[in-house]
């Protein structure tokens, strides 16, 4: 379980997060939604110790992230940041191989090789493995970064808008893979999404962040209502029922 207690975070005197406390259940997919600038990326970066905590406490599987060994944490938790500027001349397979660094410190074993090959295959990258990142399309690059995170093989995965640049097939494939990780391997996935329909279709747990505070959380089907979308986003998209599933109708 990821447990977050009383997080406040300021940048240059401006409040970015205020009194955020929540638990993200183990063995499931938690979706984090909220308007642009709500603080989702900041929250994820704090959990993954990319930013230093200013106030409050975060534990992952009982490890306090402020005090636990960062190299050990890298074997438990991985993050895909929203903005990635990994070395552009790196080849796809070299990038994915970095995912094994926390385990083998750069001396790849045969087992690491197999994990890397599997990650490449899972993201349709086998044929692109020798290409440099800056020669790939946006979606292919996103897949390469995802493959690296998968290769890291951690129990906890934090993904900040992983569907960026992915087409509908790749998006659905990724969401299904994440469900598989949660259901079959008992991993814990936290994913920032903008498309609420993906959250409704694939997440077990939903956290809504607005203006740096938790605005709602719980079962996606129950949390997402016309009223919520109106209140949080200030737009009047309707939530409709279709084949016993809730869908946000984005039409005018």
């Amino acid at each position: 379980m990821i447990s977050i207690r009383n997080i406040d975070y300021d940048i240059a005197g401006k409040a970015i997060l205020r009194d955020v406390s929540l638990d993200m259940p183990k063995h499931g997919v938690t979706a984090l939604i909220g308007p642009n600038g709500a603080g989702k990326s900041t929250l994820l970066s704090l959990i993954a110790r990319l930013l230093p905590l200013q106030h409050g406490r975060v534990t992952v599987d009982g490890h306090d992230i402020a005090t636990c060994d960062t190299a050990a944490l890298a074997r438990i938790l991985a993050i895909l940041p929203q903005i990635q500027d990994a070395a552009p001349r790196l080849s796809v397979s070299d990038l994915v191989a970095f995912g094994r660094y926390p385990h083998s410190r750069g001396r790849l074993t045969d087992q690491d090789g197999a994990i890397i090959d599997a990650a490449l295959a899972a993201f349709q990258l086998t044929d692109l493995r020798n290409r440099a990142l800056d020669t790939l399309s946006g979606g292919q690059r996103q897949n390469a970064l995802l493959a690296m995170i998968f290769a890291q093989g951690t129990d906890y995965l934090l993904l900040d808008e992983p569907l960026n640049n992915l087409d509908i097939a790749a998006s659905r494939r990724l969401m299904a893979q994440l469900r598989g990780l949660a259901d079959e391997q008992g991993r814990t996935v936290v994913i920032v999404l903008h498309d609420i329909n993906y959250a409704l279709a694939y997440a077990d747990h939903l956290v809504v962040l607005a203006e740096g505070r938790v605005a709602a959380m719980g079962n996606p089907e129950e949390v997402v209502t016309d009223d919520l979308i109106n209140r949080i986003y200030g737009t009047d998209a309707a939530v409709i029922n279709h084949n016993n599933r809730r869908i946000v109708d984005v039409g005018p």
């Binding site: 890298a74 940041p81 990635q84 970095f98």
Partner: peptide
């Protein structure tokens, strides 16, 4: 790889 990616890798 840069601050974030390197931190992620421990």
């Amino acid at each position: 790889l840069g601050h974030d990616a390197a931190t992620n890798l421990g």
